[in-house]
Write a protein that binds this DNA or RNA. Structure first.
Lengths: 195, 195
DNA sequence: GTCTATATAGTGATAGAC
DNA sequence: GTCTATCACTATATAGAC
């Protein structure tokens, strides 16, 4: 097995384990077992646990950037692309019900640990925020774009947390319909400004 | 120092530490240091860490029940009492910005750990939900009471998560104003049904 | 009720053989 | 690049003195 492939396998396994078990609760032994390498070999690829965390954060950031870029490249109105973001909670419903939002739960955990990399993890949330701000500006929200972006992002975190607690599919569906209706009304309002 | 007082001190210290550091990351040594007793003495009061968790969950449940009861006893309309719930995110703003929502972050952590007590922790969230359902029914929301209750609860979790990540006071204030306006509109709507 | 001393298992991390 | 063996440390938990 090539070195790069092993390193990638470690990052992928750690990504999944940090999500499902939490960062602090995941041990080297857990990751090593998932990749099927010895703990000793582990340290050839990463010197510390924090280095793995940084690699996982970098991977998550890159993954989300690629996801957002794919929505932008597919074209469509700003409203349609914001709707793509909203529908993540349905597409990833089963994972969210088991482990919550991968972004929100990591930032929350690292904040509590006062971990040195917590600001780097927060950058993933900031990536979503800034992308949403740009989309709302595109929609014509102007100075309110920041407010609307944070509103949608906050909505997604609330839905994820309650979905994880109560595992209520109907709740998630209703909330998606409601925020999509809100978005529709907002888009209508912005368009009517032009007259 | 009386036994009961020591036990209570342990529960109070564990409550705070589980909130600020997380359950898994808090050790007996941490709690013992906070209460200023030896680790050995610790086991006279609690046999396992899980027993302390159960005591903390019971305390949090009782505290919230008392809080909700105090709002009900103070009187006022259902709308005004729901507004009390909404304003928690402002009253507890500094704690929420540091450590998130004590209820949401605990349920999230215990779900990831697949901890045996996770359903007991979820009962605290269910307590808020059921109280909100009763208040929306009182307001005249009928079958939509459950939906409105989960909407407000979800809102609170989203605001708490984003407040912890971005520490943006203006965001919290705006979200509170918006949901209070939504609640006002809803109350107006329910009242007009009577005619 | 409180303490010290200790058992046992798991943690992150290192050294060195292959 | 991968392994085994090992270290220092911390964790939960117990035993027994006071």
């Amino acid at each position: 097995m090539a070195g790069k492939a092993t390193r990638q396998q470690i990052v992928d396994a750690a990504d999944q384990l940090f999500y499902s078990q939490g960062f602090d609760h995941t041990s080297f032994a857990d990751i090593a077992a998932a990749v099927e390498i010895s703990r000793g070999n582990f340290y050839y690829h990463f010197r510390t646990k924090d280095e793995i965390l940084d690699a996982v954060i970098a991977k998550r950031l890159a993954d989300r950037q690629a996801l957002l870029a794919s929505w932008d490249e597919r074209g469509g109105t700003a409203q349609q692309r914001i709707a793509c973001f909203i529908r993540i909670v349905i597409i990833n419903q089963s994972k969210i019900m088991a482990w919550g939002c991968p972004v929100g739960t990591l930032t929350s955990e690292l904040e509590k640990l006062e971990h040195a990399s917590r600001n780097r993890a927060n950058e993933i949330m900031a990536l979503f925020r800034d992308w949403l701000v740009a989309r709302f500006e595109e929609m014509g929200s102007g100075a309110a774009a920041q407010e609307h972006a944070l509103h949608v992002l906050s909505w997604s975190q609330g839905v994820a947390t309650l979905a994880q607690t109560f595992k209520d599919e109907a709740f998630v569906r209703r909330e998606v319909e409601q925020i999509l209706a809100w978005l529709e009304d907002l888009a209508d309002g912005e368009r009517s400004k032009d007259f």
